[in-house]
């Protein structure tokens, strides 16, 4: 019976995820050159990927990104979810919609918006510089661009994660709060003793998917690349790297290899977090 319910998902999943991955695995064993055509190379591509400095540089970058951005984003999202759920906000419906909204902005538009916000010439940064006679550092310079990307990702996904936490809080049985109130527990105590433990699975899942999202960082750097072509290189993140390998360089085989290596690394970390997160408590 379980398969009856899970079957449709698994079938489509097989078609759109597993089959292309299988194909990618197959591709990763070959090399296709503009001159000379396709030849079988065994595991050579894997050897190349593991020693490719461009790959490792990108991986280190997303690792750093992950350590800083994910906690900040989830922290803000959790705070917003708890605040809205507490019922102590004026206009909580407005809060809910407004915080969620950035997630609904298409990528093309996000690039226009942030192009304006970050612009040192005509943008908000430029305007602030002019108005106050200061010189803010350029958010799109190589040293700051990762933080600027982190800011955009946070902006886009705070509302998304907030909703996950909020809807998880919604299924926490209200009787628990009643009982806590009878016991004289304060609001803070209710949060730490009841709400957080009750939504722990949602927290773990959000963390895992944020980790995967960080490792696959692609949209935001590729959007900003037009505005900061020199700060965001074609190997800025592993996923940007596979994209440019595959689409500009026609190196589909090597791109598939990098993607698989990346997938294995990501999966290992995601499993570790999953095991640890579910075991705790």
């Amino acid at each position: 019976m379980g398969w009856g319910f899970a079957g449709p998902f698994v079938a489509v999943f097989g078609l759109v995820f597993l089959a292309p991955i299988g194909y990618a695995l197959y591709l990763s064993l070959f090399q296709d050159r503009l001159i000379g055509g396709t030849s079988f190379v065994g595991l050579d591509n894997y050897g190349k990927a593991l020693t490719d400095p461009r790959f490792w540089e990108g991986l280190t970058r997303v690792g750093l990104f992950l350590l800083v951005q994910v906690p900040v984003m989830l922290g803000i999202a959790l705070f917003a979810a708890l605040a809205i759920d507490s019922g102590r906000l004026y206009g909580k419906t407005f809060f809910r919609v407004a915080i969620f909204l950035p997630y609904a902005v298409p990528a093309v538009v996000a690039s226009l918006i942030w192009g304006f916000m970050y612009g040192t010439q005509f943008g908000l940064v430029g305007n602030i510089n002019d108005a106050f006679g200061v010189t803010l550092p350029n958010p799109l310079s190589p040293s700051l661009v990762l933080a600027s990307i982190g800011n955009i990702v946070t902006w886009e996904f705070v509302g998304y994660n907030m909703l996950i936490f909020y809807s998880a809080l919604k299924v926490v049985p209200r009787s628990l709060y009643e009982a806590a109130a009878i016991d004289g527990a304060g609001e803070w105590r209710v949060v730490t003793a009841i709400k957080l433990p009750a939504i722990r699975s949602a927290l773990v899942i959000a963390t895992i998917f944020s980790i995967i999202g960080s490792f696959q960082l692609f949209n935001e750097p590729s959007i900003l690349q037009k505005l900061a072509p020199n700060a965001i290189t074609s190997d800025f993140t592993p996923n940007v790297y596979t994209y440019s390998l595959s689409f500009s360089g026609q190196q589909h085989n090597y791109a598939a290899t990098v993607a698989i290596v990346m997938g294995v690394l990501t999966a290992i970390i995601a499993y570790a977090v999953q095991l640890r997160g579910m075991r705790k408590g």
Binding site: S141, P229, N230, A231, T233, S234, Q250
Partner: peptide, 16 residues
Amino acid sequence: VYANSIFNDTVGKAYV
């Protein structure tokens, strides 16, 4: 096409 796609990775450094 590929060469141009890596222009900013290399020559771009001179700009920043």
